[in-house]
Amino acid sequence: EVTIKANLIFANGSTQTAEFKGTFEKATSEAYAYADTSKKDNGEYTVDVADKGYTLNIKFAG
């Protein structure tokens, strides 16, 4: 089991951190699914992958 950390960075400057656990593939998939659901309210996003994929910096356009 691994933990994927997602740092969500919103257009207004606020941030949120979420953690997803499971296999690398499952946790990563859940992090992207979470970003997709947040996209409806926060606009399109880009992802900067860090820490060999264990940290995702997800920046929303607003």
Rank of each mutant, 00 (worst) to 15 (best):
E1Q: 13
E1A: 10
E1P: 10
E1W: 14
E1C: 14
V2K: 05
V2N: 04
V2D: 03
V2S: 05
T3C: 12
T3E: 04
T3Q: 05
I4C: 01
I4G: 01
I4L: 06
I4K: 00
I4M: 03
I4A: 00
K5G: 03
K5C: 11
K5W: 07
K5F: 09
K5I: 15
K5D: 02
K5R: 14
K5Y: 09
A6S: 04
A6T: 08
A6L: 15
A6R: 01
N7S: 06
N7K: 09
N7V: 15
L8M: 09
L8I: 11
L8H: 01
L8N: 00
L8G: 00
I9H: 10
I9F: 14
I9L: 11
F10E: 02
F10I: 02
F10N: 03
A11P: 14
A11M: 09
A11W: 09
A11E: 09
A11I: 09
N12M: 04
N12P: 03
N12Y: 05
G13Y: 05
G13E: 04
G13T: 04
G13W: 04
G13S: 05
G13N: 06
G13F: 05
G13A: 05
S14F: 13
S14N: 12
S14T: 15
S14Y: 13
S14C: 15
T15G: 07
T15W: 10
T15Q: 11
T15E: 07
T15D: 04
Q16T: 12
T17C: 12
T17P: 04
T17L: 09
T17Q: 11
T17D: 05
T17H: 12
A18K: 15
A18C: 15
A18G: 06
A18P: 03
A18M: 15
E19A: 07
E19V: 12
E19N: 08
E19T: 12
F20E: 01
F20T: 00
F20M: 02
K21F: 13
K21Y: 13
K21N: 09
K21R: 14
K21H: 14
K21W: 10
K21G: 05
G22R: 00
G22M: 01
G22F: 02
G22W: 01
G22N: 06
G22K: 00
G22A: 05
T23L: 08
T23M: 07
F24Q: 05
F24I: 09
F24D: 02
F24N: 03
F24S: 03
F24T: 04
E25W: 07
E25A: 11
E25G: 07
E25P: 06
E25D: 12
E25N: 08
E25Y: 07
K26W: 12
K26Q: 13
K26G: 11
K26L: 09
K26H: 12
A27Y: 00
A27M: 02
A27K: 00
T28L: 15
T28Q: 09
T28C: 11
T28W: 10
E30Y: 07
E30R: 08
E30Q: 12
E30H: 07
E30G: 05
E30K: 09
E30C: 12
E30I: 05
E30F: 07
A31Q: 01
A31R: 00
Y32P: 02
Y32G: 02
Y32M: 12
Y32V: 06
Y32T: 04
A33V: 08
A33T: 08
A33R: 11
A33Y: 08
A33D: 09
A33Q: 11
A33C: 09
Y34C: 07
Y34K: 04
Y34V: 05
Y34P: 01
Y34Q: 04
Y34A: 05
Y34R: 04
Y34E: 03
A35W: 01
A35H: 01
A35D: 01
A35Y: 02
A35C: 09
A35M: 07
A35I: 10
D36M: 06
D36C: 09
D36P: 00
D36L: 06
D36S: 06
T37G: 13
T37L: 15
T37K: 15
T37C: 15
S38R: 15
S38P: 02
S38V: 15
K39Q: 08
K39M: 12
K39N: 06
K39L: 07
K40S: 11
K40H: 11
K40W: 10
D41T: 13
D41N: 11
D41A: 12
D41F: 13
D41I: 14
D41C: 15
N42Y: 15
N42I: 05
N42L: 08
G43Y: 04
G43R: 03
G43C: 06
G43T: 04
G43P: 02
G43V: 04
G43K: 03
E44K: 07
E44W: 10
E44Y: 09
E44L: 08
Y45E: 01
Y45A: 02
Y45K: 02
Y45M: 04
Y45I: 03
T46Q: 09
T46R: 08
T46P: 00
T46E: 10
V47E: 01
V47W: 04
V47Q: 01
V47H: 02
V47M: 05
V47K: 01
V47D: 02
D48F: 11
V49M: 08
V49N: 05
V49W: 10
A50Y: 10
A50F: 11
A50K: 11
D51Q: 04
D51G: 04
D51R: 02
D51C: 06
D51M: 03
D51P: 01
D51A: 03
D51V: 00
D51N: 08
D51T: 01
D51K: 03
K52G: 15
K52D: 15
K52E: 15
K52H: 15
K52N: 15
K52S: 14
G53V: 01
G53M: 03
G53A: 03
G53P: 03
Y54S: 05
Y54G: 05
Y54A: 05
Y54H: 10
Y54L: 14
T55G: 02
T55S: 05
T55H: 04
T55Y: 04
T55F: 05
L56E: 02
L56G: 01
L56T: 01
L56I: 11
L56C: 02
L56K: 00
N57W: 09
N57F: 09
N57H: 08
N57P: 00
I58D: 01
I58V: 07
I58R: 00
I58E: 01
K59T: 14
K59C: 11
K59L: 12
K59H: 14
K59D: 05
K59W: 13
F60V: 02
F60E: 01
F60P: 00
F60A: 00
A61T: 13
A61P: 08
A61W: 14
G62D: 10
G62S: 10
G62E: 10
G62C: 09
G62N: 10
